[in-house]
Nucleic acid binder design. Sequence first.
DNA 1: GAGTGGTCTAGACCACTGC
DNA 2: CAGTGGTCTAGACCACTCG
Lengths: 239, 239
Amino acid sequence: MTAASIAKDLRAAIRSGTYKPGDRLPSEAALMSNYGVARMTARHGLSMLKDEGLTVTRHGSGVFVRSFEPIVRDSTGGKAGESTVTAEIDETGAGLVVRTLAVTAEAEPSEKIRTTLGLAEGDKVTVRERLHLRERKPVLFATSYLPAAIAAGTPIADQEVGPGGTHARLTEAGHAPVRFREDVVGRMPTIEEIEELRIEPGTPVLAVTRTAFTKDGSPVEVSHVVLDAGEFMLRYDID
Amino acid sequence: MTAASIAKDLRAAIRSGTYKPGDRLPSEAALMSNYGVARMTARHGLSMLKDEGLTVTRHGSGVFVRSFEPIVRDSTGGKAGESTVTAEIDETGAGLVVRTLAVTAEAEPSEKIRTTLGLAEGDKVTVRERLHLRERKPVLFATSYLPAAIAAGTPIADQEVGPGGTHARLTEAGHAPVRFREDVVGRMPTIEEIEELRIEPGTPVLAVTRTAFTKDGSPVEVSHVVLDAGEFMLRYDID
DNA sequence: GAGTGGTCTAGACCACTGC
DNA sequence: CAGTGGTCTAGACCACTCG
């Protein structure tokens, strides 16, 4: 029970404010002598806190208490005509930079995307991949799928969508998105996501599947958005 | 790099479908001989998968691939007049049982709750704690705070709120909630939450702060809801 | 009882950080 | 260069599961 009890003590100390965000915790060597345990045991105790997202370790430097200052992503507050995601970042998201990674005018959709968009077999989709950065750190990865029949040949299939973003182009093309559905799950990141978003150990991601519908109820866009849960809070205003 | 490469191999095998949800992975002993590593190394490789939420371990039995069949909680679909949370569970949530743990008619609010509810210093709140169970497993824990000036003396301060739940009582009292805000964060569970919700290692929680407002914009209820992210998907429909 | 995972020990060597 | 965390070894004993 020693590794667990070391974790328990440190956890209590963090919660009570003995160690504040940014503070350094006792080193492994210190814990070994304080508790009279082997190094692996001290390590295990510390690794529990890391897995809980309470601490971050810096190789060669120490174990530090973590802080959480989320960007608020207001999914309902975006002014019409702005780009899907940037409009949703409120003022605390200042300094957020969007980088378009790749745009594919015509791609074969997965079975799931195809049925969600209500496409026939053989129909193609336009795929847009974007990365959002906060102070140089990537924090959000988004992939959008639109029917190629709608998007191909428009600026949506270009690297630069133009002012107002994808939604403005869809509106111009007579497919104005007016209703949205967001499905949110929380889970641990995949290895790819850990690398892509440089996610700290012990940090989950929020995976949002956002579907945009036109007035007549037909889906015009499906977006998979993966957010570093250590960086974001999702806000929904509901009537 | 051996522990990491064991994890990598097994992860790939799970992703490719070699091991399906419910399947047992090779034992620690098998990995030791297959990879020629010490037991702690094999263990470490397996523990990575556990921390990613890919597997569950059953002491004395083995390591198994995990499955994810979420309950969809539709936050916007609840018919008016039903209780706040149960109304939000759609048909896949059948079998969901709500247990009221505690009701406190008059309690001292925390600073944060007090200001969110727009209360003056010294004002009391009514606190309701509820637990939701899915097939006997607790999956959601909710704590609601209402101004005692509104709730005390009404059935809201009773163990049984009556038909229609808290919102029906608020409406009767002339404080009908018409607008809601939900703030969603993902994080790893606290020890208390792990115990209370019997959360598997490697599973985050979704922490939802839900604020209900009346027509004139004054807040009448703040709820802190903690959901086992391994059990839920949150759905929001937005116009 | 054989096989499984859970925990701990006491060492080793390596890689990174900061004075 | 001293101190830090990252990884691995080769054992030990314990607790749980299942046939």
